[in-house]
């Protein structure tokens, strides 16, 4: 109710200027969107070409003939369905664990005071800074000795506890007014209660963000599965994609087709969650 009044107030001050501004913004947005989408257009067109047409000079935006069979070929050439299942399993598990544990830990970093907090936090950030290539070998040796090599579980535990989620959630929690915690404490809630009843509901947008990022990153991870997963039944979609690239020949038309297919699940996740960015939640509790 408040917002509509407030909106009308602003619109009152200069309607013509506002309309012009709006048109400019729209033109800008559309131009940017086109710029963003051009490579995808080329991807789609390549996925419908013959292998040797993909890089032929001069380039063609529209294929001469449409080779729809590329889209069935990718499922026949490699067990893409198995790869999809594996990737989905890893991505869902990682996202679940990551969101749960890191939103929990982030609460301690953002709203509690304890000895060694800052040092520990720097430790977390420090590990983000070390490139994976540098500690991959020690990590692998350790994981192998635990019997996790070539299991999907390996990919889950490797990615589920990354520092990224903790850092992200901590930053969001910090922007939630501390007064809210205090008020809750006075009302007799424990810290766990504050986390579950106040922080979690208030950080829906943040959790949606974390879920999207974790899901997308896990879905598109390549090096990890490449090293840790060997049997065909365990491989993931990104590793599967590279099976179209070989030593002396690569099938870019199939890579494009398979990449476009692999885009679908992640886009669905994004579309489902993005409503949380619109739903305003900030005004809900400040009055307390």
């Amino acid at each position: 109710m408040e917002t509509s009044v407030h909106g009308r107030e602003i619109r009152k001050d200069n309607p013509v200027l506002r309309r012009i501004l709006r048109v400019i913004i729209w033109i800008l947005l559309i131009a940017l969107a086109v710029f963003t989408l051009i490579p995808f257009f080329w991807m789609i067109s390549s996925s419908l070409k013959l292998d040797r047409e993909v890089f032929a000079f001069p380039m063609r935006w529209i294929p001469e003939t449409y080779h729809w069979e590329n889209y069935s070929l990718i499922w026949e050439r490699v067990p893409l369905l198995t790869y999809f299942k594996n990737t989905a399993f890893i991505a869902v598990m990682v996202t679940l664990l990551q969101t749960l544990t890191s939103s929990f830990a982030a609460y301690a970093f953002a709203k509690l005071n304890f000895r060694g907090r800052d040092v520990l936090f720097l430790c977390y950030i420090g590990t983000i800074a070390v490139p994976w290539q540098a500690y991959m070998l020690p990590q692998f040796i350790m994981m192998r000795s635990m019997g996790l090599y070539d299991t999907l579980w390996a990919m889950v535990v490797l990615q589920a506890f990354s520092a990224f989620g903790v850092f992200l959630m901590r930053q969001f929690y910090r922007s939630i007014p501390t007064e809210l915690c205090e008020a809750a404490r006075l009302d007799g809630l424990s810290e766990y209660g504050i986390w579950a009843r106040i922080m979690l509901p208030l950080s829906k947008a943040a959790i949606a963000t974390l879920v999207i990022f974790t899901f997308v990153n896990t879905w598109n991870d390549y090096m990890g599965p490449m090293i840790y997963l060997t049997r065909d039944m365990n491989k993931t979609i990104q590793v599967g994609l590279r099976r179209f690239i070989q030593q002396y020949s690569s099938d870019y038309h199939l890579i494009m087709a398979a990449s476009l297919c692999s885009l679908v699940p992640v886009s669905v996740v994004f579309l489902c969650l993005q409503r949380y960015f619109i739903e305003g939640i900030a005004t809900s509790g400040l009055k307390g």
């Binding site: 404490r185 424990s190 766990y192 579950a196």
Partner: peptide, 25 residues
């Protein structure tokens, strides 16, 4: 400041309050 204040929390309460959520998870 908020972090300091949290220190003063009464810790006698336990997780039982939040059972439904935790159970689901």
């Amino acid at each position: 400041e908020g972090a300091l204040d949290c220190e003063t929390d009464n810790i006698s309460r336990t997780m039982t309050e939040e059972e439904p959520f935790m159970k689901k998870m």
